[in-house]
Amino acid sequence: MNDDQKILLIKRYMDRTLTDQEESDFFTWYHDVSAEEFHQLVQRAADDGLPLVYEEASPAFLTQLSDRLTAMDNEQKGGTVRKISRLWWAAAAVLVLAAGTWVVLQRPTLRQEVTVNIPVQDIAPGRNGAVLTLADGSQVTLDSLGNGQIGNQNGSRLILQNGSLKYDAANAATASYNTIHTPASRQFKLVLPDGSAVWLNAESAIRYPTAFNGADRTVEISGEAYFEVVPDATRPFRVKIDNKATIDVLGTDFNINAYKDELSIRATLLSGRVKVNTTSGEAVLQPGQQAAIRETIQVNNQINTGQVTAWKDGIFNFDELGVEEVMRQLARWYDIEVVYEKNVPDIRFYGEIGRNLSLSQVLEGLKLSGVNFRIEEDKRLVVLP
Rank of each mutant, 00 (worst) to 15 (best):
L363K: 11
W88H: 05
A331H: 08
A215P: 00
T296M: 06
T296S: 11
I297T: 05
E320D: 07
D67T: 14
G151E: 12
A46R: 13
S156H: 02
G370Y: 09
R107P: 09
L95H: 14
T115A: 06
V239Y: 07
V383Q: 03
P119N: 01
H39S: 07
V219E: 06
N300W: 09
V274A: 03
K367M: 04
I256N: 00
A57R: 01
V276S: 13
A92M: 15
G306A: 03
T179F: 00
T17Q: 11
R217D: 10
G195D: 00
S144I: 11
M327A: 12
A93T: 13
A172R: 04
N147G: 02
S24P: 03
E36I: 11
D261R: 07
A45L: 02
Y208M: 00
Y334L: 02
Q76Y: 08
Y13A: 09
K11Y: 15
K77N: 08
T101E: 11
A175E: 15
D143C: 13
N117Q: 10
A245N: 02
E325G: 11
E22R: 12
F26G: 12
N147L: 01
R217I: 05
T101M: 03
R157V: 12
T305E: 06
N74H: 05
A92W: 11
S144K: 15
T246C: 06
A172T: 05
S360E: 13
Y340F: 10
N2P: 05
F349K: 00
Q106H: 07
T268M: 06
I159T: 09
G49E: 12
V338Q: 01
D242H: 03
L69V: 09
W311E: 02
G195S: 08
L9H: 13
E56N: 09
F27S: 10
T279N: 09
Y13V: 05
N257F: 15
E376D: 06
L366R: 00
N2M: 04
I118Q: 13
Q64V: 04
V96H: 10
D261T: 01
D232P: 01
Q329T: 04
E295H: 08
G322K: 09
N317A: 04
I180A: 11
K342D: 12
N117I: 14
G322T: 04
G100H: 03
I221R: 01
S85P: 05
N154Y: 12
I315Q: 15
I265P: 06
G306K: 13
E22W: 06
L87F: 07
Q76D: 08
F373E: 02
G365P: 04
G306L: 13
F227C: 14
L366F: 06
T234R: 15
I353E: 13
E23P: 02
D194V: 01
T133N: 02
S360F: 10
W29C: 03
I221M: 08
R16H: 09
I241K: 06
P59Q: 01
F227Q: 04
L95Q: 12
Q298K: 07
L363H: 10
R332L: 08
W89K: 02
Q286P: 03
G148H: 02
P51F: 09
S24Y: 05
Y167V: 09
E75T: 06
A172E: 01
A184N: 10
S264T: 13
L165S: 00
